[in-house]
Amino acid sequence: MTVKQLADSLSLKVICMPDGDREVTGGYAGDLLSWVMGRANSGDAWITIMSNVNIVAVATLADPSCIVLSEGVGIDAEVLEKAKSVGVNILGSDEDTFALCARIAAVL
């Protein structure tokens, strides 16, 4: 399943999707950035409530297929521009993290 297909199938908000054809190969949920970098796998959908600019650097290095912001968390214009410039996909949902993870897990 691609990032675009994931967004479509679960009606997730598309915050930015410069690489919608990227394959989603798993999922990881976490807000501690070092923890995520140590444990998330390349290709995962990374579910988090963190929205500062450092998530873009973490995504660039740990290489998840997309970031999915849960709990209705918004994003600053600066973070959005950074994500677009380096090709990081960011989706969003108003659901709480647990419910969102369950729905993502069900379709992967």
Binding site: D31, L32, L33, S34, W35, G38, N52, N54, I55
Partner: peptide, 16 residues
């Protein structure tokens, strides 16, 4: 509050 300071930095450096 930025998501750092979890005490994972040095251990991750060793792990990787």
């Amino acid at each position: 509050s930025l998501g750092f300071g979890a005490g994972m930095g040095l251990p991750n450096m060793k792990r990787y």
